[in-house]
């Protein structure tokens, strides 16, 4: 086991923002903490990394008790924070050298890995550029490479693709896949369902500081939601938002109406007959599970 947490709790101002979380993450697994804003994902991650002391509960990461031996654990872990905190006083290359020094690595040790890290981040051409000139995607890739200076066993990423454009996001996902293939344990927080669905072996859906479900993306879909969905949008949604269909579940969400069914043929036959063309059919996704389990009200 890479990560074991029991009864993990964190209280701020009389409120448990993390409220009794149990987790087990296997070595080599990619695991997502999935939840709306303010659900307690980042606090959970920080506690696992020894950056926030828990109010209650026990944590073991890479065999080390946390927070007591957090330093020893972090020597074998890499962390990609939610907000880039690259060192603005240094170039790309210097950022990697200086960060390596925080791990106690000498300049030669880092230099030996430099080419590989730059290639991984696809920043070989920009190695001596100041970081101010880098795009958001480049900065995130450099932050990722920086977290790899110590060749970690476990990589923790707090919302790794938030704020990136679709190309940069695809690129980061591809890099994370490459790391999985190398056997790294990946632990990430995200509120992008697609990210969890594509990357992760398992995901824990967190809401109000508790795990409401934990399984593989496919397992979560099978356990919590009908497999087939019809989406109505715009005028169609307005027109049919109050429709009642025997044997199907109808969920209005803002300007969209979602109709869930167990059988694809039966669902489409019913919709074709009643509503006609103009709808969108898709298989159920993690997003449906997420909305079902965490509710549809806005979170700030």
């Amino acid at each position: 086991m890479s990560v074991i947490a029991r009864g993990l709790t964190r209280e701020y101002g009389g409120v448990n923002v993390v409220d009794g979380i149990d987790l087990e993450i296997k070595a080599g697994e990619c695991f997502a903490l999935l939840g709306p804003n303010g659900a307690g994902k980042t606090t959970t991650l920080r506690m696992l990394l020894g950056l926030t002391p828990p109010s209650a509960g026990e944590i073991t990461v890479l065999g080390e008790p946390i927070p007591q031996r957090a330093r020893a654990m972090r020597e074998r872990a890499g962390i990609v924070p939610q907000f880039d905190n690259l060192d603005p006083d240094f170039s790309v290359r210097e950022n990697l050298i200086v960060y390596g020094a925080y791990y106690g690595a000498g300049r030669r040790q880092i230099e030996a890995r430099m080419d590989e890290l730059l290639r991984f981040a696809e920043l070989t051409e920009r190695a001596d550029d100041p970081i101010q000139g880098l795009s958001g995607g480049m900065k995130r890739r450099l932050t990722l490479a920086r977290a790899l200076v110590n060749d970690p066993e476990l990589l923790a990423l707090d919302e790794p693709s938030t704020g990136l454009d679709p190309q940069a996001r695809q690129h980061i996902w591809e890099r994370l896949h490459a790391l999985r293939r190398r056997g790294k344990t990946l632990l990430l927080t995200t509120h992008y369902m697609e990210e969890a669905e594509r990357l992760c072996d398992r995901a824990a859906i967190i809401d109000h500081g508790r795990i409401v479900a934990c399984d593989s993306p496919r397992g979560l879909i099978e356990a919590h939601i009908e497999p087939h969905v019809v989406e109505l949008r715009g005028d169609l949604a307005l027109q049919w938002k109050d429709v009642a269909l025997a044997g199907f579940r109808v969920e209005p969400v803002g300007e969209t109406v979602l109709i869930y069914g167990q059988e694809r043929e039966a669902l489409l036959r019913e919709i074709d007959a009643l509503i006609g063309p103009g709808y969108l059919y898709r298989p159920a996704s993690l997003e449906d599970v997420f909305l079902r389990l965490t509710g549809r009200e806005l979170r700030d």
Binding site: L51, A72, R74, P81, F83, N85, L86, Y103, A147
Partner: peptide
């Protein structure tokens, strides 16, 4: 502003 300390604290630094 630079969050240099936060970056250091994510490494094995106290």
């Amino acid at each position: 502003t630079q969050q240099t300390w936060a970056a250091m604290l994510a490494a094995p630094m106290n």
